[in-house]
């Protein structure tokens, strides 16, 4: 929020990239919360630990798959944090002069919930690398840092010059922050949300296929020991 204030103040213009100061302040406020909810550190590390340490054995014998077991935990945690953490920007945008369209919030949150399934699938894919490699924590860090840029958490993606903007917007990652926050703050319309949902579904098919192949190959290689 500070950097956006400074940018618009120093340029001496009323708007930046076609949008006014309030739009950026509101975007930065919402992006901080959507970005936090859309990231997966803890459960990805846990899945990696389970495979690395061999404690995955106890999950493999349960009547639920490893993917579903952690998906249920991840989604439960994220839904609870979403419910509580979003109270802050909701209240804040009610009191400050903000372009937030609150009636759009349910759809914006729904897009992110769908995106969270993709986040988990990507995390699962990274975790399956533990079957083949000794240390994979670095992949989690690299992936999540790259995602802060690709999701639009750092700045609204419509500021990116062409052709990069089109490329980034067709990737499913912008549905974590840019698409829901852009829709919520009036930068984007319903057609952008529809395109976002389509890109999540394509992303799910893509990463799902990789995850399934990696999981099968990993399980063939893995030998569980211990009581």
């Amino acid at each position: 929020m500070t950097i956006w204030s400074a940018i618009i103040t120093s340029t001496g213009q009323e708007s930046f990239g076609g949008f006014p100061r309030d739009s950026y302040i509101t975007y930065a406020l919402w992006a901080a919360f959507f970005g936090r909810v859309g990231a997966n550190w803890m459960y990805e590390f846990r899945m990696i630990e389970e495979i690395e340490s061999g404690s995955i054995n106890s999950i493999l014998v349960r009547p639920i798959s490893f993917y579903e077991y952690y998906l249920s935990q991840f989604m439960g945690y994220k839904l609870a944090t979403t419910l509580f953490s979003f109270a802050v920007p909701i209240v804040a945008t009610l009191f400050i002069d903000s372009p937030t369209i609150h009636s759009r919030l349910p759809l914006a949150v729904a897009v992110q919930i769908l995106y969270l399934i993709l986040v988990h699938t990507m995390s699962f894919t990274v975790a399956t690398l533990s079957f083949f490699l000794t240390r994979v924590h670095g992949f989690t860090v690299a992936k999540n840092i790259a995602l802060t840029l690709l999701t639009g958490e750092l700045f609204p993606l419509d500021l990116v010059p062409e052709p990069f903007r089109s490329w980034i917007l067709w990737l499913p990652f912008s549905n974590s922050v840019f698409v829901p926050v852009g829709y919520l703050t009036g930068r984007l319309g319903i057609e952008d949300v529809a395109r976002g949902i389509l890109s999540i579904l394509i992303g799910l098919a893509f990463f799902g296929a990789i995850a399934a192949a990696s999981w099968r190959a990993g399980c063939r290689r893995y030998s569980g020991t211990g009581a």
Binding site: I7, S10, T11, F16, G17, F155, L159, V160, P161
Partner: peptide, 8 residues
């Protein structure tokens, strides 16, 4: 990206 829209 930011400097793509402003000089300073």
């Amino acid at each position: 990206v930011l400097f793509h829209h402003t000089r300073s």
